[in-house]
Design a protein around this nucleic acid. Structure first.
Lengths: 339, 339
DNA sequence: TCGGCATCTGGGAGCGCTCCCAGACCCTCG
DNA sequence: CGAGGGTCTGGGAGCGCTCCCAGATGCCGA
């Protein structure tokens, strides 16, 4: 197919061995960082590698060895790509950063080429050593199913029906809690929330944080409307909230993208922001900074998200012990004009 | 490392051969779609494959064969991730869709693990059969360098210093031209533009389209300010334009994200949109629909972008003849409230 | 009739590694 | 002093395929 370039160029492990004055086996040991190699040999091999510009053949290693030298990034996207897009690119960047320098290939899977059974078959078929599963939809069965096959995985976003699946997530609860405390510190007294759908952990955790913040100060925990992470549904939710409590003075919105809709409705109704109603979003997406007025929001480190997932998976593959089953990443409040 | 699961599970090509009653060689021929296989054998092999659930071992094929069965997606991102992010995720989705069903792995590279020399060495080292290079910065030398090594590549976005490098791009020129014609059809007579930077083809092509549109109607081609694809620089550019021509009645902005800044300035200055000044953006990004007022903009099919690039590369790898050197994808005007 | 060609097939070398095994060499301890 | 271990080394089988070669068959035209 690929015309020209018949055989792969570059030196083999055998030549490295010759130049270094050791055997193939020893070179292999050095490359794989095994012990039982003398310092002298190790140095010699490294020099030879540098001299020849040697880089091990991925296919050969995989074929001969017992591991695939590859991990999969599985995007389990059930609709809601709205939330997924910018988010996803950053996660990927983090994953990639963490993979840098290691001889591990990253394979992408998106529920497309093979679905359901086939996808699971592929993943557990020895093509990869482990998987990162980004699953926004909390009730997605994929994480659990994969985990039960024994394939090492790390899920991005707390799975609702998780069992003991290792996961990494932003600390949505404390992020929301912080936002509410901030609103209270501003003197707000009637704080509503536009929450995410019931089936997404990200939404539920933020809702819990809001509840907890209000409860701390003995405030009523009633003004909740669920929505679905689109601007329009955010607008609808805001209308509903205003109908129920025209005198509310703050709204915590579980996602910037919904906050845009809310902002629109508030302004159309003549509420001044933040004077009459303070608005705090979540995510610190691109949208937040360019909103009118610029949105105060809870920032999460999405790139760190990807990095942490990858770190956790690689650590498990390396046989590290006593890894935390799950990890929550800190969030921070970004103060802009809306609150 | 990967504890347990010692040897890879699943049937080998040998077992397929036995079940089908033919030789290894014949099975291999069927898998690779070669000719010189009788219909009877072909059927038998297909049945055996289905029966056993056989899936060829990627590492073995790559090791034994003369091709890598993998292509790279190289993100050559020099800064400006702003533009890159949402764009990038969609491109990736397109690439992935086009790859579905083929036995080709997708490797990601992001200028991180290996830079410059190393990256080129890796790509031309036989690890991949070809590369998709997404390069926003038109003067990026990478596309040309790679192309000169003989590695089949397709560049996303027209390279400024391209030579004869195959590329795929949105039809930025005609998109811009269409936008200007639309503004003229609305009766606008003093149409400015906020253009992209000089070193990005995407910016220059849109600028040319604007120029051409005005020239068609003998209108002055003067109100240009260059900017750099951020909301703030868009705002600055708008201020500059208003200083030079307070009576302008339309602006074509070369990217939605800059249009947001422009919108902000116009509104702050008391211009009504679209009554006093009509605004047209480009990209139809998420930002466009949620802007206030919702932005009329030129839509490009970003997913199609990824698909087309991939299709072109695979076609070349398959040895297809007479492929177009470059391909421009159509754009369309999305009419909202701002014009 | 026989060579030539196109069609179809199987056998087997070998892609570049890893990993098992056997062995050489130390040091420590009973 | 020798047994037992830990340390280091090289040799070589074999991972699951592809691809080359040789051979078997059929059909054509000379």
């Amino acid at each position: 197919m690929t015309e020209g370039r018949s055989r792969r160029p570059g030196p083999r492990i055998e030549e490295v061995a010759r130049v270094a004055g050791v055997s193939k086996s020893t070179v292999s040991r050095v490359i794989n960082g095994e012990k039982y190699v003398s310092e002298r040999s190790r140095q010699a091999v490294h020099r030879a590698i540098a001299l020849l510009g040697y880089s091990p053949n991925h296919a050969a290693r995989t074929l001969a060895g017992s591991k695939a030298n590859a991990i999969a990034l599985v995007i389990s996207e059930q609709g809601s790509r709205v939330l997924a897009d910018p988010f996803f690119a950053q996660v990927l960047r983090g994953v990639h950063a963490e993979l840098a320098g290691r001889h591990v290939q990253l394979l992408l899977m998106m529920n497309q080429p093979l679905d359901g059974e086939d996808q699971i078959a592929y993943l557990t078929g020895g093509h990869v050593d482990g998987a990162l599963v980004v699953s926004l939809h909390g009730e997605d069965p994929l994480p659990r199913t994969l985990h039960e096959t024994g394939l090492p995985i790390v899920v991005g976003g707390r799975p609702l029906a998780g069992g003991s699946v290792p996961f990494v997530d932003a600390d949505n609860f404390n992020g929301a809690l912080g936002a509410v405390r901030f609103l209270i510190s501003l003197g707000r007294e009637k704080i509503a929330t536009i929450a995410g759908p019931h089936d997404m952990a990200v939404g539920m955790d933020r809702l819990s944080g809001w509840r907890c913040g209000l409860a701390e100060h003995g405030m009523a925990v009633e003004l909740v409307v669920h929505s679905d992470f689109t601007p329009d549904s955010g607008a609808l939710a805001m209308e509903e909230l205003l109908r129920r409590a025209p005198d509310l003075d703050a709204v915590f919105v579980a996602a910037d993208i919904m906050a845009l809709g809310a902002l629109r409705v508030l302004q159309a109704r003549g509420y001044r922001i933040p004077d009459d109603v303070a608005v705090v979003g979540f995510d610190d997406s691109v949208l937040a900074a360019t909103a009118v007025p610029p949105l105060t929001t809870v920032r999460q480190d999405v790139e760190g998200f990807g990095r942490t997932m990858t770190w956790r998976l690689l650590a498990e593959l390396a046989g590290e012990e006593k890894l935390p089953q799950s990890m929550l990443l800190p969030t921070s409040l970004v103060r802009r004009a809306s609150a």
